[in-house]
């Protein structure tokens, strides 16, 4: 029953996503109805080019929806000012940092920008939040290093710390496990799981690591050409949705172990 008392963090109503151009609208996916609750870890999977990034961009207000609504904390996302939005929704993107010379502490502190004054001075209340973000991501020892000195895995950790410092109810990550080895993929996803439980944040990430996501996520969003489905990993496996995700000539989905393997 506690499921129902939790707040809805992110919800879409008949959302159509795509790109507008002068001549015509290019629809990428239509009739998307998904609901994410507070404290859930949600993975978004689908093949390359299916529109995962477009969906994330639309959910985070970078792109306008073609039609339909995105509700953030039960309020239409277009009603948020950019600063209000920055206080409820934080991002971890795939794009490279413009300056890799920033110290880790400075980078994480930039997460506090939506709350600082016109010149960006940190107040006394900001420092504990920054330290907490570093502790939760186990990056305290990296505090005084510069970003170019970090490994890819460490940098991803630090970027998550920055998003944490932004202190938002929702965190959206675009392919946070790309370029990482298997151990660090697991490490990052496990960290996201821990964060969603300990801080009651709604965490949505896109990923190609379906095997790992199925083991950790509360819910999975599967994008296929036909539709966008959402459900618990168990339900989705029962529906057989992963069997249709890829062409069957190379890899097949094994229901029992809940993972893809080479077809022999």
């Amino acid at each position: 029953m506690s499921y129902n008392t939790k707040m809805t963090a992110l919800k879409t109503e008949n959302l159509h996503i795509g790109y507008r151009s002068k001549k015509q609208n290019i629809t990428i996916a239509s009739n998307i109805n998904i609901t994410l609750q507070q404290g859930e870890l949600v993975g978004l999977v689908g093949t390359n080019g299916i529109g995962k990034s477009t969906l994330l961009k639309t959910l985070t207000q970078v792109l306008a929806p073609l039609s339909g609504n995105v509700l953030i904390k039960e309020k239409n996302s277009s009603q948020y000012s950019s600063n209000r939005l920055a206080r409820v929704l934080s991002l971890v993107l795939t794009e490279k940092l413009a300056s890799k010379n920033l110290k880790v502490l400075e980078l994480v502190a930039l997460g506090r920008q939506p709350y600082t004054n016109w010149v960006g001075n940190l107040s006394k209340t900001d420092l504990p939040i920054i330290n907490k973000a570093l502790q939760l991501t186990n990056t305290v020892h990296l505090k005084h290093k510069r970003c170019f000195e970090l490994s890819d895995g460490q940098l991803q950790n630090v970027m998550i710390a920055r998003a944490l410092a932004q202190d938002t109810d929702i965190m959206v990550l675009d392919e946070p496990t790309t370029h990482l080895d298997m151990y660090h993929k697991a490490y990052i996803l496990k960290l996201l799981k821990k964060l969603s439980k300990e801080t009651q944040k709604t965490i949505l990430f896109s990923s190609h690591d379906i095997n790992l996501s199925l083991q950790l996520c509360d819910k999975i969003i599967v994008m296929t050409k036909e539709n966008v489905a959402i459900g618990t990993p168990k339900d989705l496996i029962q529906q057989g949705i992963f069997k249709t995700l890829f062409p069957k000539d190379l890899i097949i989905f094994d229901d029992l172990s809940a993972r893809f393997r080479m077809s022999t």
Partner: peptide, 12 residues
């Protein structure tokens, strides 16, 4: 310094 998309997500 983070890039324009990050700047936007920080409310700039």
């Amino acid at each position: 310094l983070l890039g324009e998309n990050y700047a936007k997500s920080l409310g700039i």
